[in-house]
Design a protein around this nucleic acid. Structure first.
Lengths: 339, 339
DNA sequence: TTGAAAGCGCTAACAC
DNA sequence: GTGTTAGCGCTTTCAA
């Protein structure tokens, strides 16, 4: 099967290939009759545009590079899903890269994007990213860039993130409003911004409602379900008094839930539990788990829209970074509803 | 910032651009000294290869098109994660497309892949796909194609799928071996191959172990968690006797679990429950849910490897489709362990 | 409304 | 070991 090019169509119709090119691109200066003839011949010959050639010549690829730590994390695969939807609806395709939280792979991915001359990049940085050279390179090359979820503040780049502080505040506020007074918070032992923000929200909510901030009620660790269990066990050993638990993640919250049930603690009568992330299982467990939704699909869509906006603005030389901060959503379920 | 090409490097070094091209591609006929000089100059000028130009000339893009129904389904995002890992390790990048189970979008995606001259395509068809023309077109164009999970048998194309029959058999066999005798199976009311296969495995396992196949114990419906609950409620109303439930999906199984607990039925003493898919929440609920693991990451990796193999075979004209069928893994947890 | 011509940046066959 | 040359298939400017 021979490759069909615009030249073949041109020969068939006794016009030049540039007329064919124009007709296929719906150029206004081409007569309707010619367009029709070209389209029919293209169809008949089973012609298919070569985007590579088109990109080389025009300088546009209609491809957007998307780099995430890992698709195995539901949060990111959801965001990518949202990105793909919007980008595809606007004629762009997605070149996908997983960094696996490795700085080396991240650099390699961005290098590939740049070599592939993508029309824009959407990125969520790795936890290892301390060296920003890859991203500086993107900026230097004037390739539109938007961060989502994990951004680099110093670079003054457009981004879409979620207000984790507000999420922490809202979760805590909800527990307080339900009448809980001694709220245990499980947070991470590593310095990760989003978790620190949730903690800050927790503390501020307590203060706002005039409740004491008790350091004994702030527990740090890896945030596995197992750790959730450990926290509850140790709290019992120490005779720690608490009537609610706000865990930084739904998975941690599940560990808490299980251990409390093992101790025959009534949820939410004696102790309330709320998680974070709105994982799919939250509504399937007993009692159903209250949580904070992070609006993943929306984040992807907003990030994509922001990039598209940036690409338009390029033309008019406007270059003010826009930082969209999404509000997390409180999802109240049985595990924390006592009123 | 001016665009740097191999010509700029050539000028700096007083060699021709083809020497530069060879040096950058590590051509054996270029002296080490020249290579070094070229690399240093490239670095200094911040040169970056233009993959578009390279692809146009060479006919290779190093891009693989991947089309899935939706990344919001954990199963698919996991598989894509596996695909990306292997492909990236072999120098390929992923162009990603979501069909959203729509035939129109599927066609559009494949059209884009073909126009982008991808070096291969990995696809999981939509539930709507009855017209195979898009895939026939891929084959006609001699673009290597591998199906994963959802394949089109008639096309005689390489594929990686999971043995759902065996999954159904294994789940049922496990329950029988644990001493359960009246096993309720929840399946789909729509004609979906994988679910029919699981059902077939269920039936064969019963027969193999000399147990009667009772139509009353096979319940069809949408397979939401809600439906799982409904099944248990109705079984009670009808005084249906059963001592185990094999649900076609973990989500359905969760509904079953919850309703049984609401009825104070002891799991697994009175009734065992097993699901399918090994969703992340299975080990977090009480009791932990037994299930069948579908080896998603492995499926992605195998599909990627198969495509790579196909691309090599292309050269030697071998073209026998290879159909890899992965064995599902039985994961025994508390919900079905009574021995 | 259409044609002519240049060239995007690279690869690769052939030459020396 | 390096240079010469011819495109890959398209977009786009200028001309008619």
């Amino acid at each position: 099967m021979k490759k069909v090019t615009i030249l073949d169509i041109a020969k068939e119709l006794n016009v030049t290939f540039s007329t064919v090119a124009r007709a296929l691109n719906d150029h206004p200066a081409i007569s309707a009759a010619t367009k029709k003839a070209v389209r029919e011949t293209a169809e008949r010959l089973n012609y298919r545009q070569n985007k590579i050639a088109s990109s080389l010549r025009s300088g546009r690829t209609n491809v957007i590079g998307v780099i995430v730590p890992s698709l195995r994390v539901t949060f990111f695969s959801s965001v990518v899903s949202g990105i793909e939807q919007v980008m595809n609806a606007n004629g762009y395709n997605i070149l996908l890269y997983q960094s696996n939280e490795s700085l080396v792979k991240e650099k390699k991915g961005i290098e590939t994007f740049l070599q592939s001359r993508v029309d824009g990049i959407l990125a969520s940085i790795t936890t290892e990213t301390t060296d920003y050279s890859s991203y500086e390179e993107i900026i230097k090359r004037k390739t539109p860039l938007v961060f989502f979820d994990r951004a680099i503040d110093q670079l003054n780049i457009s981004s879409v993130t979620i207000n984790d502080y507000k999420g922490g505040f809202t979760a805590t506020e909800h527990l307080i409003q339900q009448g809980y007074k001694r709220i245990l918070h499980i947070t991470a032992d590593r310095e990760i911004l989003i978790f620190r923000e949730r903690l800050r929200g927790y503390i501020d909510a307590l203060r706002y409602y005039g409740l004491p901030v008790d350091d004994d009620l702030i527990v740090k660790g890896d945030f596995s379900p197992e750790f959730g269990k450990t926290v509850i066990k140790e709290a019992r050993l120490k005779n720690l008094e608490y009537d609610a638990v706000f865990a930084l993640e739904d998975f941690t919250a599940m560990g808490v839930l299980q251990q409390l049930q093992e101790f025959n603690v009534k949820i939410p009568e004696e102790v309330a539990v709320i998680g974070f992330a709105n994982e799919s299982f939250g509504s399937l467990v007993t009692p159903q788990l209250s949580t904070i939704d992070q609006q993943t699909i929306l984040m992807g869509k907003e990030a994509a829209k922001l990039l598209l906006k940036l690409k338009k603005a390029e033309l008019t030389q406007e270059e003010k970074p826009e930082k969209i901060v999404l509000d997390p959503l409180l999802i109240v379920r049985a595990s924390s509803r006592r009123k």
